[in-house]
């Protein structure tokens, strides 16, 4: 079994360094979160303001896509290494899903 110990050398130095890095990452997470909240508010405002659907629909879909990228890459750490296989399978799933949605909005009623 691979139960590797990844710590190296001096344990206390190691920990202090890692904590700092973790704290820094956490700060990024909070910034991401703020952005997500901001995007959400914009989306709701766009709809609340009663602008034309030709503008709002693509706009809120775009905002949703951006938010999802934030969730995946920051909250779910897909930006870290070791996520190649997860990314491959998630995007494949997304592709199949998008084709399904496309079909259902085009060739179910005609």
């Amino acid at each position: 079994m691979e139960n590797n110990q990844t710590n190296t050398g001096n344990a206390t130095v190691d920990i202090a360094y890692r904590r700092k890095k973790n704290a820094e990452e956490m700060r990024h997470q909070v910034i991401t979160f703020t952005l997500m909240i901001f995007l959400t508010i914009i989306a709701f405002v766009a709809v609340g303001a009663g602008m034309s659907g030709w503008f709002t629909v693509p706009f809120i879909l775009l905002l949703a896509a951006v938010q999802v990228v934030f969730q995946l890459y920051y909250f779910m750490h897909m930006s870290h290494k070791g996520h190649e296989a997860p990314a491959l399978f998630l995007y494949s799933g997304l592709l199949v899903g998008l084709i399904t949605v496309l079909a259902f909005v085009t060739i179910v009623w005609w």
């Binding site: 199949v96 399904t100 079909a103 060739i107 179910v108």
Partner: peptide, 11 residues
């Protein structure tokens, strides 16, 4: 809409 089943089934 009964076509929905056909799509889901064949997908």
């Amino acid at each position: 809409n009964t076509i929905i089943w056909e799509h889901l089934f064949w997908i």
